[in-house]
Design a protein around this nucleic acid. Structure first.
Lengths: 128, 128
DNA sequence: TAGCATCTATTACGATTGTAGGTGGAAATA
DNA sequence: TATTTCCACCTACAATCGTAATAGATGCTA
């Protein structure tokens, strides 16, 4: 399981750790908007499961509370996400782009940004 | 359940109907590559579940075999897919594009195609 | 120190997904 | 017609996910 598959809720928990550094369960729970915030033990369960998947680990303890930190990087998790998503489209990029554009998810600005990113990237690769 | 969520296998079954027209279970099963092809009854189970979700229906009968046809359009299904996917990224397009580019899934040609699509689309919208 | 608040650890349960076996009936074929 | 093949329908089961309750341990506070 080199790149574990994470569900949406698991992703949200990882996001808390990625952007907020090592956190306790309670702190992770509080990163969710009050409206519809999952119960403490729900977050706890998911954290334990993420631990089993080696996506995070117990870094240290404060009082009797464990502090968890991400093991899996945001980038790796998102790579897996993208791969699965492309798999849903038969691995072909074209229909994905078409869908994004048709549905209005992809704006002209996004495309311009993408071009710039591509340019920067190919430059970096040449330099390296 | 206006736009039902479909799993990967369900998607593949729908894909068979979208591209192959109304089909019997056996025919759907045979659209899968021999290597790793799911059992007949596996396909059957998924078809029944898609029926419950109103993603397809029994169109007619040939002999004692039912012929199924898609009710849900490919476009609608993919829209749902994209929405869920974006939801995983917090609904922001930017990190998605960044990820696609970093991972090499999005090539310069894809971006050029995207531009053309965007132009055509804005033209069509103006005309309409 | 007694009690309240907070954590941990364990257990449970329904829904969804992928997987498929078994049984009985219908159709094609020998 | 007898037999083989195919199909429909029902049932089952393990894994994952979201949800959370409960019980027991620990730590803070009056």
């Amino acid at each position: 399981m080199r790149l574990p598959k994470l569900s949406k809720l698991e992703l949200q928990i990882m996001e808390a750790l990625w952007s907020g550094g090592p956190l306790a369960i309670r702190e992770i729970q509080e990163t969710f908007p009050q409206k519809g915030r999952p119960a403490y033990t729900t977050v706890q369960t998911m954290v334990y499961r993420l631990e089993v998947k080696k996506a995070l680990r117990r870094a240290r303890k404060i009082g009797n509370a464990h502090i968890f930190e991400a093991l899996l990087s945001r980038d790796a998790a998102q790579r897996r996400l993208v791969d699965d998503f492309l798999g849903m489209f038969g691995g072909r990029m074209q229909p994905v782009m078409a869908q994004l554009i048709e549905a209005g998810n992809l704006t002209p600005k996004d495309v311009v940004d993408a071009e710039k990113l591509l340019r920067d990237l190919s430059k970096k690769r040449k330099d390296a």
